[in-house]
Amino acid sequence: MTVLFVGLIVSFITGFFAYNFWLDNMVFLALYAEKHMAGIGFESFNFLFDIFFGYGISLIVLKFLKKGFDIYILWVDGDADADPIILLTNFFRAMTIAIGFPVIYEAVAKIIENLSTEVITAIGLNIDNSQLSLVNDLASLGIFPAILYLVFTVIFVYLNIQFIVRGLEIFVLRVGIPLACTGLMDADKGAFKTYIQKLVQEFFTVLIQVVLAKLGLALMRNGHIQDYNIYFGIAALLLAAKTPRFLQEFLIPSSSGGGMNGVYSAARMVQMTKIAFKR
């Protein structure tokens, strides 16, 4: 019975790691989700960029006209004595970023790709399936090592699903950039500032998760129970899986006197009110 169970585990692990896609396309999956979807027959996703780009440019123009009318004609918004060049500068900045973002994104994505490749190569984690020897001796090692390798593989499957989710999140953020650029027409940059912070967090998440995933594979490649490689490999994957929450503690949106401070003040007020009523 034990031999049969171990054999099933070995077959599952071998079948999974024989599929090259997971190992070779981590960064591509996260940064270019629409290209992968186009490769499997969903080419219409590319048209979403054109649709939202058109609506975003229209909203920027409409917001520019409305703000100009409210400030300099109706005198109901902003300072009518302010130099109109400020409003014009904000308009051109919003238009430039909305139009040029695809080029900017390609450059940043290429930097992330190259950086992840160089980091992985520098610390000796640039491995492929031909070098993976995860299951060579499982049958002889016994059921406990087989279960540990199974846990590792399940976490790795979950991590790759996270890469797909990350790719779709980045895709949605990229599609919505022209709409977010309308915030640049405001003095505090509106939603644009938080939007970009979220995109930067996604980039850092992809970079760290790819490196940790490769580290886990390298540790498990020639792992043995007695030298703790298996445990370190599982730990690396667990850390990779919780990277988004880990980074959230550092890359949180902040504002001077606005949003987060207002939420904090409101929460404190509610807390003090509850205490007062209890008394």
Rank of each mutant, 00 (worst) to 15 (best):
M1H: 09
T2S: 09
F5T: 10
V6A: 06
G7C: 00
L8A: 11
V10S: 06
V10Q: 10
G15S: 14
N20F: 03
F21K: 08
L23K: 01
M26S: 14
V27C: 03
A30V: 01
Y32F: 05
K35I: 01
M37D: 06
G39D: 10
I40S: 05
G41V: 04
G41I: 06
F42S: 03
N46P: 00
N46H: 12
F47L: 09
D50A: 11
F53C: 05
F53S: 11
Y55V: 15
I60F: 04
F64L: 10
L65C: 11
L65R: 11
G68I: 01
W75M: 13
W75K: 15
D79F: 10
A80D: 07
I86D: 15
L88N: 07
N90R: 15
F91D: 02
F91H: 02
F92P: 01
R93A: 07
T96P: 00
A98C: 02
A98L: 03
A98T: 08
A107M: 09
V108F: 14
V108I: 15
A109F: 12
I111N: 02
I111L: 13
I112Q: 08
L115Y: 05
E118G: 00
E118K: 04
V119W: 02
V119A: 03
T121H: 06
A122R: 05
A122N: 09
I123P: 01
I123D: 01
L125T: 05
D128R: 08
D128F: 04
S130Q: 13
S130G: 03
V135D: 02
L138I: 14
A139D: 11
S140Y: 04
L141F: 07
G142M: 07
A146Y: 02
L148S: 12
L150P: 01
I155Q: 07
F156V: 12
V157R: 06
V165Y: 12
R166Y: 13
E169L: 12
I170F: 10
V172R: 07
L173Q: 08
L173P: 00
I177N: 01
L179D: 03
A180W: 10
T182I: 15
T182G: 00
G190M: 05
A191R: 08
K193H: 13
I196R: 10
Q197W: 14
F204N: 10
T205R: 02
I208W: 00
V211W: 06
L212D: 03
R221E: 12
R221F: 00
N222V: 02
I225F: 15
Q226T: 14
D227F: 13
I230A: 06
F232P: 04
F232S: 10
A236K: 05
K242S: 12
P244C: 08
L247I: 05
F250G: 00
L251W: 06
S255F: 00
G257F: 04
M260R: 07
S265F: 13
A266K: 03
A266Q: 11
M269N: 09
V270H: 05
K274V: 08
K278V: 10
R279V: 06
